[in-house]
Every structure is written in C-alpha cells, then in structure tokens.
Amino acid sequence: MADTPQRPIIVKRKKVISGGSHGGAWKIAYADFVTAMMAFFLLMWLLGSVDGSTRGGIAEYFKTPLKVSLSGNSTLGESAIILHGGGKDLTKTSGQANNKVPAQPSKDFDLKNAKELMEREEMIKMRAMKNKLDALIDSDHKLQPYRKQLLIDVSSEGLRIQIVDESNRPMFGLSSAELESRARDILRELAPTLNSMPNKISLSGHTDAKPFAQGSKTYSNWELSSDRAHDARRVLVEGGMDESRLMRVIGLSSSVLLDEQDPLNPINRRISIILLNRRAEESAINEGRRQIAPPLN
C-alpha cells in the first residue's frame, strides 16, 4: 500500500465581540422615544398657552392649509406668532420698552351682535302683536265703528296704539278731561288684549296746538293732556288691565303732533298707548334712577 500523503490541518478561529444581549440598537430607539415625548409635551404646553380662538385657527390651518393661505383670512391672530405666556420678550430691544398690548378676544363685538339679534327678534314679535290687534279690531263688532280712530304701528319704542279724535266723533268734550262714552268703550275693549301681552305700557295724552279755551297761568294744555291720560288710565284699569303693567302716564300737550302740517287737525288730539320694547323699557327705568357722577380726580 502506497503511503497516503497527509493533509494539513487548518484551524479557523472566529473573533467574537461582546455587545450585550441586543447590542447598541436599543439606545437609538430609546433616544427617538425620548425626543418624541419631549416634542409632544412641548406641543401640549404651546396649545395651553394660547386662547380658544387661536387654537381654532391652528386647527383650521392644518385642515385646509392651502385655503387659508390663499384667502388670507387667517384666524391665528398675533398669539400664533408671539406667545405672551412668559420668558423674555423677544420683540424688546436693549434700552427700549415694548408697549404693545397683547391681542385679546373682543367681547364688545359679540355683545353688539347679540343685542342686534335680540332687537330683530323683538321687532318680529311686535309685528305679530300688531297683526293680532288688527285682527281683533276687524272681528269685534264693538270696535269696528271706531276703526278709523285706531292707528296701530310699530315705532322705535315699541307697538303703538293711538286713539285719535274725529271731527264728528271727539274722544273728549271741549276743554274737558273726561272721556266720551264711545272712547270709554274703545279702551274697555282694548284692556283685556293689552293685559294678555307681556310688555310694559306707556300712556300719554296729547292735544292740538289750539290754546286752552279757559287757559290761565295755572291750567293749560299741559295739564289738560295729563288729566286726559290719567282718565284713560282709570278706564283701562276698569276694563281689566293690570295697573302694575303701566310704566309711565304723562301729558305731552301739543309737543308731539301727529299732523305737523296742520297743528289744529283733530287727529292731533289723541291718547297714545305704547307697548314698550326692551330698549325703551330700560330707558324709562334709567330715567327714574338717581344718576351719581363719578368723582373728579
């Protein structure tokens, strides 16, 4: 047997580097996690430092960024650029003071809108009450003969009902403060309807521009118009109207003419009943309150 040549023995040695169970990859992942958490808490702090309107603007921007950019109506406001929460004011240079007042949400504008909305709603109610009164007069056989003497409209103070004189159907006797029987019938028929409406009432008496027939320095058209207004008040209360509904009873003589072109027109002699709107009612209340001027500094 021939001698078999002996093969050389090759020994392979593998170099092993110890790196823990997972090496160093977990450190990178942990660093990313910590960075993300810091960014999250920073975002929460920023959102907590701005008001609700600014947060709404930020949300709107991220929903439709292109629309907001093109329209130019960004609602982000000043606080989206500079946060006034604390820290150093970056808009202040050395030796200067920033007197700029931070933007604040305007409450006056919202209050004005609310008042305008309330006045519009009240105007709608006043017109509805006018239609109700018109329907009542047209359906009541006792009031139909006096339809021309009843003027109903909506004024700046509220729903106004005016009972006017006619040349052949005067409400009062000449120079008298006592109502005629037909005028009493009108007021008694109106009393329950007025009592069913929630508004406060202003009652005023008016005369024409003709001087009082028996005028003197102590009694004139001013006293006559006031006495006629109070007589109308008594008849309304007798007809069922709640007297606590009355806000004021006044005589205006001929200072407020219905027909300014003809001051002697019988239509100027009238009783005016106004269902006051909210603004007129507040004005009447403030007239009776004592106004104290603030002290001078």
Rank of each mutant, 00 (worst) to 15 (best):
E260V: 11
I201D: 06
F172D: 04
D231C: 02
K132L: 13
S176H: 05
T218I: 02
K115P: 00
E260D: 11
D138A: 15
T218H: 05
P295A: 15
P8S: 10
T75I: 02
R269L: 09
S53Y: 08
D165P: 03
S204A: 15
A36C: 03
V235I: 15
S181C: 01
Q6W: 02
M38K: 13
N286Q: 14
V11K: 11
V16R: 14
S255G: 00
S202V: 00
A229F: 05
R184C: 10
D51T: 07
K130F: 01
G239P: 06
R270K: 12
L194C: 07
Y219E: 01
A97G: 04
L76D: 01
V237L: 04
S204I: 00
P294E: 11
Q149T: 05
L66S: 07
D231K: 10
Q214G: 14
M247C: 10
L143A: 07
I250T: 14
K15L: 12
L90Q: 10
V11Q: 07
L190W: 04
S181V: 12
L117M: 08
L257E: 04
S79E: 15
E178G: 04
R245L: 12
L111C: 00
I82T: 15
Q149H: 08
L276E: 06
S196R: 12
Y30W: 07
E180I: 01
S94R: 11
D165A: 11
H22E: 13
M118H: 02
E60Q: 14
N286L: 13
R279K: 12
K217A: 13
P295V: 10
L90I: 13
E260F: 01
V237M: 04
G85R: 13
G57V: 05
I137A: 06
H206N: 15
D32I: 10
S196I: 01
I274P: 03
I161M: 13
A59C: 02
L190E: 04
V50G: 03
R120K: 14
A80Q: 02
V154T: 12
K100V: 14
G240P: 09
R290N: 08
F172W: 15
E189T: 05
R127Y: 14
A135R: 08
P211C: 01
G72E: 03
P198Y: 03
K67L: 06
N221V: 02
P170E: 10
R248E: 11
S156C: 00
S79T: 14
I10H: 13
E282R: 10
D140K: 08
R160D: 12
E287C: 00
R188H: 06
T75H: 14
T93P: 03
L236F: 08
I124R: 11
K107A: 13
D89M: 03
S272C: 09
A280G: 02
K130W: 02
S202E: 08
A128D: 12
N131I: 00
V235S: 05
P102T: 09
N195S: 13
A59F: 08
G19H: 15
L66K: 10
K112H: 09
Q104M: 13
S225W: 01
E189V: 04
W222V: 08
L66A: 11
I10C: 04
I250Q: 12
R279P: 00
L252M: 09
A2C: 06
S139H: 11
V34L: 11
S226K: 13
D32L: 13
E121P: 00
M126T: 03
D32H: 05
L296I: 12
S156L: 09
G19I: 15
D259P: 03
L111S: 13
S253R: 09
A128L: 10
